[in-house]
Design a protein around this nucleic acid. Structure first.
Lengths: 319, 319
DNA sequence: CCAGCTGAGACCCATTTGTGACGATTCTGG
DNA sequence: CCAGAATCGTCACAAATGGGTCTCAGCTGG
């Protein structure tokens, strides 16, 4: 009874969990019965089901289009000239909208990432959720490129974490920018950009097939602020300079123009141009706080596929 | 609030159902809360959730490989030289094994049917379940070809029904053999085989990319008998002639050889040869009663991908 | 016009599920 | 070997779920 955990995780019997999930979700049996048959306690079955869902071992897909949302989708597509728009219902409970949008993003990736294709990703809760809900595949020679530098201080959500999760789910080779998100000085940044291995990873960006981008906002609910990615001071001065958020380290104002700021000279990221030539630039962001930066990103040509939620979509199509 | 039912079905609000499913499965809210938010009764939400699952509007996928089964899978693959083998847990309740195997078959189709590809299918409960659980797609120019004739008397599961469901799920053009499964006489069969439109549909078969085949057994639990597809007399004489079942109307003995019988001269179906050249010949069949015919099908070169359940797989690898 | 049918909501109840408390068992580090 | 921690099973209970019945309104066909 070998349990080959290809997950880098010791204490979780994926084989057993999969079997339990099968009987529960596919066969529709009761947890009690499954426990009896498998010689487990009901409690155990219950917990493993929960854990399996959390780990994305069971994937639940809802047939699109999602009705009401599809009208918003076509209006977004037409209004902004997008390739695709996907709108999911806004949470009615206190669920994190990022999980929902991310889940839809994972589905989108699963459907549009062809074998052998290269995927660029950024970081954040949305991307994290996407990685969790992307359909597992193996042996399709995909590559994942992380489009930003790392954070030394491990927050709950770390770029390297995001990338590694996504790569694991896709059985992809993963390329990291081995540099901080913000270099200590502009000089250091310029140095790092042209030095290996950062240079060659950044050189991959224009050849990516698909980029999964997230939007960092600069509202007072900004996660970047909460996680301490940017200082309170930077937050204030960025806002003062007109920035409404950033895409992959490019700070934009409401019209999609680049904002100059002391921080922008220290960011280690792919150039705007190299992002703009990626065929599918998927921006996944939901919630009211992301509306401005999403609109800016579209204007800046950084997004031709939008995945968002109903509330943000409604705000976007107004005006 | 337009409800565009592209399903050929009046009384079912797919948009609403999708929204309910989203809040329930993705967001994890309670039926009560969803009902409140959407101004529905809890009962209604409950019923729509059930209906949505039945209609395959929500798809639940469990990350493969399914542990214990994966050992059986590799043994099957090696022992019979298959391209793939997929083994799902046998039902522990009184669930129909065909639904489970069919569901796995639907997943397989979803993963392996490339855009523009042509899919041949047969009929039966397994295929029905597969059609229900295949991931919906649209605009991918797939084609579905039904590989057998029809049954005039509408049983609960009719070939034309299966084909139409599958085609609808894939947004595919569907090609039917406009002839009975068994012609009234051998002469009529020969006539039909060379006459339009039967001839040209059969001519498509060798060019199919993927065939989803089911196995009809001749045990005393045979569904063919139950549904009255073959008479009790034929059943007896076919068994007496050594047949253990049929694949797409080709009756085989335990070693995979064709069985001669008065019935075989009246079957309207694609030739063995034309089936054998299809790159992916997926046989989906589970349960103890199918073991012999599955083994025969593999020997006859009618199957290079097998989807079955644990009990059948165990029996197959023994001996 | 009315008996009968159908579908939907209201209400009710048995089952199933999620979760917390508590005690037993195993693991771990000294 | 032992103390403490972590894990796991048992029990209990509240919440959530899935069916059932009942009733009523609207419609149907005679």
């Amino acid at each position: 009874m070998t349990t080959d955990n290809n997950d880098a995780d010791g204490s979780f019997d994926a084989a057993l969990a999969a079997r339990i999930c099968w009987h529960y979700f596919k066969e529709g049996q009761t947890q009690e019965l499954i426990a009896q048959q498998l010689n487990l306690t009901r409690k155990r079955v219950n917990r493993m089901l929960g854990e399996a869902r959390e780990r994305g071992l069971v994937q639940i897909t809802i047939q699109r289009p999602l009705g009401l949302c599809s009208e918003l989708e076509s209006r977004l597509t037409n209004m902004f000239g997008l390739r695709h728009a996907i709108v999911v219902p806004s949470p009615i409970g206190n669920t994190d909208v990022r999980v929902l949008v991310g889940s839809a993003a994972g589905d989108y990736i699963s459907d549009h990432l062809t074998p052998g294709a290269a995927l660029g990703i950024t970081w954040g809760g949305t991307i994290n959720a996407a990685a969790q809900s992307v359909r597992r595949r193996s042996g399709e020679a995909n590559r994942v490129v992380l489009l930003c530098g790392g954070l030394a201080e491990s927050t709950s959500i770390n770029p390297y974490d995001n990338a590694s999760m996504m790569a694991r789910a896709l059985d992809a080779r993963c390329y990291y920018i081995t540099a901080p998100m913000f270099a200590a000085s502009a000089e250091l940044r310029d140095l790092l950009l042209v030095s290996e291995p950062v240079r060659s990873v950044l050189a991959m960006v224009p050849k990516l097939d698909l980029a999964l981008l997230s939007a960092i906002d600069l509202t007072d609910q900004s996660k970047a602020l909460e996680y301490g990615v940017i200082s309170w001071n930077d937050w204030r001065s960025l806002r003062a300079a007109g920035a409404v958020g950033d895409i992959c380290g490019h700070y934009l104002d409401a019209d999609g123009n680049l904002v100059e700021h002391s921080l922008t000279a220290r960011v280690i990221n792919p150039s705007i141009k190299s992002l703009q030539v990626i065929p599918l630039r998927v921006l996944a962001a939901g919630g009211a706080s992301k509306v401005s930066i999403v609109r800016a990103a579209i204007k800046a040509g950084l997004c031709n596929v939008l995945i968002t939620d109903e509330s943000a979509a409604t705000a976007l199509v107004r005006r």
